[in-house]
Design a binder for these strands. Structure first.
Lengths: 338, 338
DNA sequence: AAAAAGTGTGCAAACGTTCCCAAAAACGTC
DNA sequence: GACGTTTTTGGGAACGTTTGCACACTTTTT
């Protein structure tokens, strides 16, 4: 089965023009007379001409596509980011190719390399929770692939980055728990590698400190796989409960939902006694039981900003040397318990 | 910024061979001597040669990419389907381009046409709830674009289709409500256009009929926009509550969560008294309150099957004329209320 | 009236592949 | 050692674009 489409050549032949003239007319170049342009445009319209993007890409050495790496699309935070990315990309006539790392370093690397070999023009990536070694990204970047990081960003990598104000989001959530009377607040978080883990931990600590509550390292639990394996969550919960926390602050979307499930499974009684606050962009929080206070990231906007930055890099005439890290504010949403 | 990569020409020059020889050696053709092959392969490895997929696509007149249209990725059913699609596609060296219709016909058409002009080799699509006119798909199909429908399929369109056993899933859920003592069971469902709407309605009716419960049309509410606008759900709920249903069966993922929210918002008291059963692939149902009985579709598998069928069409030497509709069984998951 | 400048068009090369066709090399066979 | 076979290689066109350059024609300038 094959698509039959008309090409510039066909139009040229039909109109008795050269392919160059047709090409230029279609791209509305100044050299072509109005008359000819009209003629060509009209005919192109008639035969429903669509430029072959592959030929164009080959010639121009760019694909007008950008790659996205997220840990998983079945996660409201990431799917909202993707919506933001698409809203900008489509406007600027790029299309996006989404890949999921499922929080696996191996998968992430594989996907990135697959995308790169598919000649994407740029890459938007949130690192997997396993990722420590980003040399493979450095290599691609050095070869000229524009990269913009969002959400989970590496420390020493000079490029544009877009993140939420993790410190403040964390601080606010923790403070909220404190203000509602909690004094023994646990913190369940991602792999220590991640930027978000560090920043959110700092916010948590700062809030404790502000209210003169001692920081206890044993109340902090890390999940190496970002909650992809339910066992790691159950393990963490089992370790935390004996310490009798009266509140828990959870540091990412997947972990938040996973943790509540683990709590319910491990000890339903207690689950309803512990106050929960956590990062999540789920639009279903209102349905959750036990309820929780959520920190929402401006996911859509983050996607938009990251994409704008990436496209500006792609389309820059000269190598970009000035980079920025955009920090967007989170929002604390408090569901009143029924 | 530009990517610098080595090409077949570079290799040919470096090795004093012709491009044709190098190309054949890389593709492991029988005509080339073992010796030359080894030489070429070794060198290619050394310079980290990657075939330019765009050039290849241009020459072979196919892109090795398939388009996907779903209503939204922030929906567990669809994101699981996408995972299934990817699992097969990547194996067969296709990449996927995902587009969201957001249940809008206009957006769906726009996206499909965008994808088609991007020269995808085939299309996997679940129709939007607004879609009635699929002539634009017929046109593309007639021009040679292989299309496989899944979940929401059109009636009179001769191609492969993959669906869940909607009738049975519906029947089971409704029967479950009946067996737990409910007698006045409402049905909240999608736009009447959709195949799933009809099939699920039939299952619902059949269950009622089996237990000699009268079918009351006023207990069935349709949501034209698939629950994308929260107002349509609230409207539907407001209309239903005065009829005092003791159970409600909801016919799709988005609607199920949306309906529970609308119920809670409209009348929290009643929300906990009505027994709820609904189609949903959310992995968070255990957290929901009020709890519900869910009908889970084999989403991952549906994606896999659809992709296999699509790729078989793409790679068929002669036009395919025998089509199949695969029907996969759903699963009824009953959460015991805490 | 000739030179200069401006306008519109076409030729042909290039992007990186694949593959048809022919040519060269290696090998048997008598 | 001349001839047919087989094996291995190379030349070059093609996929559908874009674009530098040259050319022809018209208009303006001096």
């Amino acid at each position: 089965m094959r698509f039959e489409t008309s090409t510039i050549k066909d139009i040229a032949k039909a109109l008795g023009l050269s392919t160059s003239t047709v090409s230029r007319a279609l791209r509305d170049r100044y050299e072509i007379s109005e008359e000819t342009k009209k003629l060509v445009l009209a005919y192109a319209e008639k035969v429903n001409y669509r430029a072959n993007p592959i030929a164009r890409s080959l010639k121009e050495r760019r694909s007008y596509s950008i790659g996205i790496i997220v840990s998983e699309i079945a996660n409201n935070f990431f799917s909202q980011v993707i919506n933001g990315i698409e809203s900008i990309a489509y406007d600027k006539d790029y299309h996006v190719i989404i890949s999921q790392s499922h929080e696996s370093y191996k998968q992430e690397k594989l996907n990135v390399e697959h995308l790169a070999s598919r000649s994407i023009d740029g890459l938007l990536i949130a690192l997997s929770s396993e990722t420590q070694d980003i040399d493979y990204l450095r290599n691609l970047y050095a070869k000229g692939l524009p990269i913009v990081f969002f959400d989970r960003v590496p420390k020493d990598f000079e490029t544009h980055k877009v993140i939420a104000n993790n410190f403040k989001g964390s601080f606010d959530a923790t403070e909220h728990l404190i203000l509602s009377g909690k004094r023994s607040i646990a913190h369940l978080t991602n792999s220590e590698n991640l930027s978000i883990t560090k920043e959110r931990l700092e916010g948590y600590k700062a809030a404790l400190s502000k209210y003169h509550i001692e920081f206890k390292p044993e109340l902090v639990k890390y999940c190496q796989h970002g909650g992809m394996h339910s066992t790691e969550l159950e393990q963490a919960v089992k370790e935390l409960l004996p310490l009798n926390p009266d509140g828990i602050f959870i540091s990412s979307d997947r972990l938040t939902t996973g943790c509540i499930m683990a709590l319910k499974k491990t000890n339903p009684e207690v689950a309803y006694k512990i106050a929960i606050a956590g990062f999540t962009n789920s639009n279903l929080v209102e349905l959750f039981s036990p309820s929780l206070t959520s920190v929402k990231q401006p996911a859509f906007e983050m996607g938009q900003v990251a994409t704008e930055l990436l496209i500006s890099m792609i389309e820059a005439k000269r190598p970009v040397t000035e980079f920025e890290t955009r920090v967007l504010d989170t929002e604390l949403v408090n569901i009143t318990r029924r």
